[in-house]
Nucleic acid binder design. Structure first.
Length: 823
RNA sequence: GCGAGCGUGGUGAAAUUGGUAGACGCACUGGACUUAGGAUCCAGCGAGCUAUGCUCAUGGGGGUUCGACUCCCCCCGCUCGCACCA
């Protein structure tokens, strides 16, 4: 065999990638009874080219996949494309091509880039969410959920851009204008489809406790997003009117301090209460002004508290007090009941409102060691304390009072214990073209009629043409016009498409049986593979994607497809790739194109650098010189192996009895390194320290080469280096493994285990401290006893000097580590 | 405002979880080899000083401890998330 003395990464990587492709090395099948491991990286949006964030994400995932494979697991490691979405439509408009053409071109290009990285995906499982083979099952799920009442339609106010003819998400509204065309965004009421995620709020919250493999930060963010509050829902009778107003409060203990009532401007009772009264005009004007202001206000600033008196009063059922009802700009219709009992003494917003409109402030909870005086209070007092001026409840601790007051309201029938969540139902309607069509028909006679299952998929029109009509669906008459599946008369198709988050909410389940034609998943395959043992992606998906995926897992479970409660057992949120202190982005002009790097250094070097520069969860500062360092290291190992091929003719096992010092030291270091690298990967995927461990071994192997090292030991060391590095730099190791005469590929080899006996040190370095400061070091045999060690330390020359003739007060011995002499 | 997290050399980072602070890499400095070196190899590399050694040093201050980057309290700075949630 011709051996190249130089590390020719281009040749090596191309050859191995071709071989992996041809031999389908990474293909994986469902093997009941064999332990499985499912590792998944968040699939990419096919935007055109991969970026450094992808490189990092997929390098991490690939190391884990290969590592677990070497440990004997049946590893599922799939890849696909989150392919629907607005950028395709924008690109299509700009370039005059079809969104499908743009998307599929990008997928082809990016697949090539991923293959050039040498990632061990089972490409036979690839999926793209924009294909009817995928979204037809999403449509089926939609219909099943619709039937179960978990999807419904309602009228809501949305942010509408008339210019773009579409609904905008809240974050797409910038200072009241559209992020894309800068035109004013208008509130518009329209019908939309909603998933009843609030039905699962409690389970989504309580199951967070099962996610011990998730970063605490993400769990906290989800908990806050769901936002559970317990309190009292209580009816206040409107004075001189039939209506009652129901409020929700988490502070029932302050109910005796209510001095007015605030309603959201959208509250339906506002109209009822003011119609035909002298206040009607003022209230209507205020409502209009507030609605406009809400639309306009930038998100980062709270407007001043404002309101208007409705002319009406209501009765506090606890005190019988008659308090004025206001419409107020700070009350949210979407949360609680849209009506708030105002306790200015104990709520900051109510306090500010009361100050503005000169309303009474009545303290009813006195914090310990403090007496609240309404005349001098500068802000609301929100601390717990003892109730005052609260009728029968006076003198009760506030926590107890909450319980007692709820109980009292329940016994009197005007209130009850109530739980409310911040989480709202998930609106999935999008007035866009490039998304999965919602499979229902609108019939004048029958209303909303589901498309029968045997007519699925409802295919997005025009996707089979290279270019063609891709205007929004509501402009495509040939798509819209249909017949009612129920009565057969002419009817119209739904023109909304689904939010792209729907596709990414169940793709991990589809990967377990991506070609299944009998349903969204094959139940047996799903049972075998799920949950995902390790999920990896950016923290920017900490709330929405991960919450929706959890929600869908529970839906699929309740529909009988899955048996797991949670989709992702362990979650790793990797940090961003930054350069010059900020995230890489086109607008900042600091992007580094991974393909250029792979061209220049090879995929293995790029992978090694991205794994070495920082632990996965931390941000990675891009550093071109660091890539050079990674390249240098691989070149060094290459030379070391190629120049020492002779050692591979030595015995595969080491005879420890005959080793000289250098050989024994290298043998020991080799086994210590196996232990250390395994531990670094096992405990927290800290590949940076794993790599530095291998570097140390390489350094020692290099420096002991001239010391007459036993060839069997040298062979063991080189084999260990290649095996340990394989998950990170697979082409490189596979090539050197073959060059050194191995028949079986590393891919099919086992992760090495370490020999504890070999790793044991002959000598220990014991630190000797005097009063906690290091004064000396002792070389001792590991078997030394504590007393002996103490003796040695006390007689040490340097120690004696620092003890300065004083008697030791206390001597602390830490096994195998140190002796501290306190004087 | 609320919540979470972070802060270690010139620099990316380590530190067996309370036991030698700075492993490993980058940069830098000196040397070797060389026609040449941006290759390779060797050595040095936290700061200060009265330098074979000592003192100081993990954002700042205090505490617990024989011993603190690590635990506790206060402050400063940065990052992220939520944001009038009653």
């Amino acid at each position: 065999m011709q051996i190249n003395e130089k590390y020719d990464f281009k040749d090596i990587e191309q050859r191995w990638q071709l071989r992996w492709d041809e031999e389908k090395t990474n293909k994986v099948t469902h093997e009941p009874g064999r332990p499985k491991y499912y590792v998944l990286e968040m699939f990419p949006y096919p935007s055109g080219r991969i970026h450094m964030g992808h490189v990092r994400n997929y390098s991490i995932g690939d190391v884990i996949a290969r590592y677990k494979r070497m440990q004997g697991y049946n590893v599922l490691h799939p890849m696909g494309w989150d392919a629907f979405g607005l950028p395709a439509e924008n690109a299509a408009m700009k370039r005059g091509i079809h969104p499908a053409a743009w998307t599929y071109d990008n997928i082809d290009y990016m697949r090539g880039q991923l293959k050039a990285m040498g990632l061990s995906y089972d490409w036979d499982r690839e999926l793209a969410t924009c294909r009817p083979e995928y979204y037809r099952w999403e449509q089926k799920l939609f219909l099943e959920l619709l039937e179960r009442g978990l999807i419904y339609r309602k009228e809501t106010t949305v942010n509408w851009c008339d210019d773009c003819q579409t609904v905008l998400a809240r974050e797409q509204v910038i200072d009241g204008t559209c992020w894309r065309c800068d035109q004013p965004v208008l509130p518009k009421t329209m019908h939309g489809w909603f998933f009843k995620i609030t039905d699962y709020a409690e389970e989504l919250l309580s199951d967070l406790d099962k996610l011990s493999g998730w970063p605490e930060k993400v769990v906290t963010m989800q908990r806050n997003w769901i936002g559970k509050s317990t309190g009292l829902a209580c009816d206040f009778q409107v004075d001189g009117h039939d209506e009652t107003i129901t409020i929700f409060t988490t502070r029932p203990d302050t109910i005796h301090g209510v001095t007015f009532m605030s309603l959201a401007v959208e509250h339906p009772l506002l109209k009822t209460l003011t119609e035909g009264t002298p206040q009607q005009e003022a209230v209507e004007r205020f409502v209009q002004e507030t609605l406009i202001e809400k639309q306009r206000s930038s998100l980062d600033q709270e407007p001043d508290k404002k309101g208007v008196f409705t002319g009406r009063y209501c009765i506090n059922p606890f005190t019988g007090d008659r308090v004025p009802i206001y419409a107020a700009n700070f009350v949210l219709m979407e949360y609680g009941t849209g009506a708030v009992m105002a306790v200015p003494a104990h709520d900051q917003r109510d306090f500010e409102f009361a100050k503005t409109y000169d309303l009474p402030i009545k303290p009813v909870v006195q914090p310990k060691g403090d007496t609240l005086d309404p005349a001098t209070m500068e802000s609301a007092s929100v601390d717990p304390g003892v109730l005052v001026a609260s009728g029968d409840f006076t003198g009760t601790e506030s926590e107890q009072a909450k319980v007692d007051i709820i109980a009292h309201a329940e016994s009197q029938g005007f209130g009850k214990s109530h739980v409310t969540y911040r989480l709202r139902d998930w609106g999935i309607s999008r007035q866009r073209y490039w998304g999965a069509p919602i499979p229902v028909v609108h019939c004048e006679h029958c209303g909303i009629v589901p498309v029968p299952e045997n007519e699925l998929p409802v295919v997005l029109p025009g996707t089979n043409e290279a270019s063609g009509n891709h205007s929004p669906l509501h402009q495509q008459e040939e798509f819209i016009a249909t017949t009612c599946p129920s009565c057969g008369k002419p009817a119209r198709r739904e023109t909304d498409t689904m939010d792209t988050f729907v596709e990414s909410s169940w793709y991990f389940a589809r990967y377990t049986s991506p070609r299944n034609e009998d349903g969204p998943v094959d139940k047996e395959a799903a049972k075998y593979w799920l949950g995902v043992d390790q999920y990896i992606g950016g923290v920017e998906h900490a709330i929405l994607h991960l919450l929706y995926a959890r929600f869908f897992t529970k839906l699929l479970r309740d529909l009988g497809y899955l048996e797991v409660d949670e989709p992702f057992i362990n979650l790793l949120t990797q940090g961003m790739v930054i350069k010059d202190g900020t995230k890489m982005s086109k607008s900042k002009g600091n992007v580094v194109d991974p393909s250029d790097l792979i061209e220049q250094y090879g995929a293995d070097t790029v992978r090694l650098f991205s794994l070495f520069a920082a632990p996965p969860e931390r941000d990675l500062e891009w550093n071109a010189q660091g890539v050079e360092g990674a390249s240098r290291f691989l070149n060094r190992v290459y030379r070391m192996v190629v120049q020492n091929l002779a050692c591979f003719e030595a015995e595969a096992s080491v005879d420890t009895a005959t080793l000289n010092d250098a050989s024994r030291a290298l043998h020991r270091k080799t086994h210590q390194t196996i232990a250390r690298v395994t531990d670094s990967i096992e405990t927290n995927f800290h590949f940076n320290t794993a790599i530095s461990g291998v570097m140390e071994l390489v350094n020692q192997a290099g420096s002991s080469a001239g010391d007459g090292v036993d060839q069997a030991v040298y062979r063991e060391t080189l084999e260990t280096i290649l095996t340990l590095l394989f998950p990170m730099v697979p082409h490189f190791c596979e090539e050197l493994w073959t060059l050194s005469g191995h028949k079986e590929q590393l891919h099919f080899s086992s992760w090495p285990s370490f020999d504890a006996e070999a790793a044991k040190e002959d000598e220990l370095t014991i630190v000797v401290q005097v009063n906690g400061k290091v004064r000396s070091k002792l070389q001792v045999t590991p078997s030394i006893g504590d007393d002996q060690l103490k003796e040695l330390a006390l007689n040490d020359e340097k120690v004696i000097k620092f003890m300065d003739g004083k008697e030791p007060k206390k001597v602390i011995v830490v096994k195998k580590k140190l002796v501290n002499i306190v004087i």
